[in-house]
Design a protein around this nucleic acid. Structure first.
Length: 481
DNA sequence: TTTTGAGTTGTTCGA
DNA sequence: GTCGAACAACTCAAA
């Protein structure tokens, strides 16, 4: 096929212009670039984006279109199967080249393999790139040539190669769209936004899109990153990076985060320890993708097969109480309401909420993973799977089974002023610090004074912590060996 | 092949 | 109040 000088840059979860190798390659090898988004949620299998993710995606696509237009381009939006749409757009525009950045979810990997073969069969030049990870999952192997199953040696192997990584790519100056208008759906036609307007809290909390991502990275790198080692554990303070949704949608990439961390250390050498612990979190993200690649069954099946026999105790009433933030454990309920309201939950609180759910309530971890999938703006199959299997004790390098978070102690350690609880539990706000995280222990007079009536204005604990902890330990004991 | 050291994030108990 | 040990072995990864 003759090269017409037109290329398709196929966008998926790489919704940025900077450090975007597929876009850069398209701009380098073609005069005209069709920036294409194909809406094909069925190609995500059973993990099509949930409600919060769709909200984010809508706004991220809008921002991407704006920044393309500033540089002379525009975003073309289509709906349909990826392969047929790519072929149709190539036919309509005479494009001879297709560039994209790789995804790593099992359903997408299988699909992309077929797409690449079929496009090549049709005579199109295809190339895919890594925009989402520091290292390809198949490049990191133990000395025995098998995938790592323990984080520390995995990260040691990765860290040894970080210096060899390419620098982030610059933003292309000009992204020239072809002269003829290519038919495109309007963004609203994808119906990504909720019909019932529950998204006000998301708007307050987030600014989706590349500009928001870069602003957040800059602000984090010049501030909280230097305190990250300890600060990241504090749900009451804005001390985490809050980059997770941006990383999921590829509005910023890990190479940029790494570069920002290094620059921060160069400017402030004393921040090295904290910057390292932030980069290590990027390492967990890498590890999650490594595991998903090598163990593609894990989104629904425990990596540790002993857990096939675990005596979970599914209970819809408990599931709903947990989802709605009505477990009677304030730190858990605060977290679940933060999630519902903002599409995000502090990681420390995620662990506490997930520990109560899987261990004390003994609910199947997959039910929790599915709720997070639908409600998180940062819902990511690799990270969500690792997090839930880690907490449940059935994953790689998982928490030992006896590690069961105590919601009262965790609150005392990580929300010392109870600021986080009061933010999300106004019905308890007037209780003093001593009782707000364990209202069931508060004297009747204190409750009355604060306007709290347990069982009416706020639930009693739906389960006894100590007894359920013992029961969980016994359940785990039953599947040992 | 065998050995060895080590393993994100905790809780509870008893001194 | 603080502190160390117990909790349960097991598996991983490298020497």
């Amino acid at each position: 096929m003759n090269d017409t000088g037109t290329a398709i840059a196929w966008f998926r979860r790489d919704l940025r212009l900077t450090d975007n190798p597929a876009l850069s390659a398209a701009c380098e090898h073609a005069r005209n670039v069709i920036a294409l988004y194909v809406h094909a949620p069925e190609e995500d299998g059973e993990w099509a984006p949930g409600g919060a993710s769709r909200w984010w995606l809508h706004h991220s696509l809008a921002r991407l279109d704006e920044s393309l237009r500033v540089r002379g381009g525009r975003l073309t939006i289509r709906r349909g199967t990826s392969l047929e749409t790519l072929l149709a757009v190539a036919r309509e525009t005479g494009a001879t080249r297709v560039y994209w950045n790789r995804l790593y979810d099992p359903a997408r990997v299988a699909h992309d393999t077929q797409v690449k073969a079929a496009l090549r069969e049709a005579g199109l030049h295809c190339e895919s790139f890594n925009a989402a990870l520091l290292h390809e999952p198949w490049e990191v192997r133990t000395g025995q040539g098998v995938p790592y199953r323990v984080f520390t040696p995995f990260w040691k192997a990765c860290a040894a190669r970080l210096d060899a990584l390419p620098r982030p790519l610059p933003t292309p100056d000009r992204i020239a769209a072809p002269p003829a208008i290519v038919a495109s759906l309007a963004l609203d036609e994808l119906e990504l936004r909720p019909r019932i307007r529950w998204d006000a809290g998301l708007h307050e909390a987030w600014m989706p899109g590349e500009a928001g991502a870069l602003a957040q990275l800059e602000s984090f790198a010049s501030g909280a990153m230097a305190r990250y080692s300890d600060g990241r554990n504090r749900p009451d303070l804005p001390e985490t990076s809050r980059l997770s949704p941006y990383l999921h949608f590829g509005e910023v990439g890990p190479r940029q985060c790494l570069a920002a961390a290094r620059n921060a250390v160069a400017e402030r050498p004393s921040s090295r320890g904290s910057a390292d612990s932030f980069v290590r979190e990027l390492g967990w993200r890498e590890f999650a993708h490594h595991l998903l690649h090598h163990f593609p069954q894990t989104p629904t099946a425990p990596l540790d097969t002993r857990f096939d026999a675990f005596p979970w105790d599914p209970n819809d009433a408990w599931l709903e109480a947990w989802q709605r933030g009505r477990t009677g454990y304030p730190i858990v309920d605060a977290g679940m309401r933060e999630l519902w309201h903002t599409g995000w939950m502090h990681n420390r609180v995620r662990m506490i909420a997930a520990s109560l759910f899987t261990k004390n309530l003994r609910q199947p971890w997959l039910k929790g993973a599915q709720w997070f999938w639908d409600t998180l703006v940062d819902a990511d199959l690799a990270n969500n799977t690792l997090g839930w299997q880690w907490t449940a004790g059935c994953g790689a390098d998982a928490a030992p089974f006896f590690r069961i978070f105590n919601p009262v102690l965790q609150t005392e350690r990580f929300d010392p002023e109870r600021v986080y609880l009061r933010r999300w539990l106004p019905e308890l706000a007037r209780l003093p610090d001593k009782w707000i995280h364990c209202p069931w222990d508060a004297p009747a007079a204190v409750l009355a004074e604060a306007g709290v009536e347990l069982g009416r204005t706020y639930p009693r604990p739906i389960i006894d912590f100590r007894a359920s902890r013992e029961a969980a330990l016994a359940a785990y004991g039953s599947i040992k060996r």
